[in-house]
């Protein structure tokens, strides 16, 4: 391992940042708008789904994951799987208690 040279930085154009920001504001508007529509069982799901799109945008562009080594993506995937296990176990427990 002799990568002691300067780190390589992908410098994104300002336009990309602004576009991501506009997309985030747009999606926030949609979330608020959707909350006034009665979607019965899907209200929470819709809010959660749009929030996840927003989070993905922040991760990819603001947190630069798109331009990092694949290692970072895999670490995030590992965290999500672990978190999924926690959710699964909690709900399994809850099903037999309530």
């Amino acid at each position: 391992m002799s990568d002691h040279a300067h780190e390589e930085h992908h410098i994104m154009p300002i336009k990309t940042y602004i576009l991501v920001w506009v997309a985030l504001l747009f999606l926030t508007g949609i979330t608020i708008g959707a909350s006034y529509v009665n979607m019965y069982k899907f209200t929470v799901f819709t809010a959660f789904f749009i929030a996840t799109i927003k989070v993905t945008l922040v991760l990819l562009y603001f947190m630069h994951i798109r331009y990092e080594k694949p290692l970072y993506t895999w670490m995030i995937v590992a965290v999500l799987i672990t978190y999924g296990i926690f959710i699964g176990l909690t709900y399994a427990d809850y099903q037999f208690r309530w």
Binding site: T28, T31, I32, A34, S35, T43, V44, A47, F48, I50, A51, K54, V55, V58, L59, F62
Partner: peptide, 14 residues
């Protein structure tokens, strides 16, 4: 910011 993105709809918009 990420935490707030989930907090906001789950608390304010359900």
């Amino acid at each position: 910011d990420l935490v707030w993105i989930y907090l906001f709809p789950l608390f304010y918009l359900i």
